[in-house]
């Protein structure tokens, strides 16, 4: 996993885990890898992983079982909301980069329809 070095890494770890959850790589109720496993897998600091997981616990997308680790929420509303947020993020990026290329919002609509046909 390659991180961008000018964005806080704990935010990128969160994005990475959101994506794994939304795509079903990590399933509702499933235990996620331990802090140290994630740190080694992502080549980051244990403290940084901890910070990301703490925030995700506060958000409710993960929950902690004492002595057992972190688990993915089974709250379907929250999972749906997380998916919607990821979609919005991607749309935002797409529209922004289209605008940067001089494509107006109206044009995006037409271009996209034509592309998807």
């Amino acid at each position: 996993m390659e991180f961008k070095d000018n964005i806080p890494i704990y935010l990128q770890i969160k994005q990475y885990l959101y994506r794994q959850i939304v795509t079903g790589e990590l399933k509702p109720g499933q235990k996620i890898p331990s802090v140290r496993e994630l740190a080694v897998q992502l080549t980051v600091n244990v403290n940084t992983v901890q910070r990301a997981l703490q925030q995700m616990n506060v958000e409710g997308i993960l929950y902690t079982k004492r002595g057992e680790g972190n688990f993915v929420t089974e709250d379907t509303d929250l999972l749906e909301k997380t998916k919607q947020e990821l979609i919005d993020d991607e749309l935002n990026k797409f529209v922004q980069s289209m605008n940067d290329l001089g494509v107006s919002n109206d044009q995006i609509h037409d271009i996209l329809s034509a592309y998807l046909k």
Binding site: K4, D5, N6, I7, P8, I9, Y10
Partner: peptide, 14 residues
């Protein structure tokens, strides 16, 4: 702190 540097949109190398 490295994360503080990144909060300012800077890479550690920069």
């Amino acid at each position: 702190s490295t994360e503080e540097i990144r909060e300012n949109n800077q890479s550690i190398e920069e």
